[in-house]
Design a binder for these strands. Structure first.
Lengths: 110, 110
DNA sequence: CAGAATCCAGTTAGATACTG
DNA sequence: CAGTATCTAACTGGATTCTG
């Protein structure tokens, strides 16, 4: 990654941007999930992308990855304490996004 | 565009996501700008991308494009009234983004 | 179960040249 | 001045196969 991360808004887009990151986070906000749970909850995501996005979110510190060294392996993902600070941000974004979608619906209806 | 826009967070990312959109918006939040002004204010953006992003932001309704049919042509871009509703969202994002950058700086310093 | 590895298609962004 | 057009490079995401 050749990232400078100057603009804070870009930072947020970088952390949250990625086709499945918002959904992943949304599910983890509810409760801890295993890899397989996430796959089922997000049927359209490929294993590759799920893995990749989870790694990136982990690297940013917003989620926690816990490996249980059992057979078969068990890996749990959860929102980290730090990740919880994202919730209010997500809520504000959601609110605007919803009203924007609403607006566009009206627009295309007229 | 084959967009479903289900998730509101993705909507925000879609509106704000694009290498130069946050910067463009940031400049337009300050005041109305001409095409040429933006080019100078954002030296690294190519004409193509500037045009493209401006068109997209206009399409989303967040900026207003005013053409003065003079010779030479004069085109002014400004934040629309609707676009101003993005300001609080941008502020929240900025705040989190800044603290996140801070955090990463500390991390790499250690 | 939870992935790693590889290959491929589509999208996005940059460079350059041209124009009403 | 404010673009458009074209070509290309880079990146993102998907499909498939394989494994500790």
């Amino acid at each position: 990654m050749i990232h400078q991360l100057e603009c804070p808004i870009e930072t947020v887009i970088h952390v949250l941007g990625g086709k499945w990151k918002p959904v992943i986070l949304w599910h983890l906000m509810e409760s801890t999930k295993r890899f397989n749970d996430l796959e089922k909850l997000i049927p359209d995501v490929s294993q590759k992308m799920l893995t990749q996005h989870l790694r990136e979110l982990e690297h940013e510190g917003v989620i926690k990855r816990t490996v249980y060294p059992t057979v078969p392996p068990k890996v749990e993902y959860s929102l980290s304490e730090y990740g919880k600070t994202l919730i209010p941000v997500a809520e504000v974004m959601c609110a605007w996004g919803e009203s924007h979608n609403e607006r566009k619906r009206e627009e295309s209806a007229s």
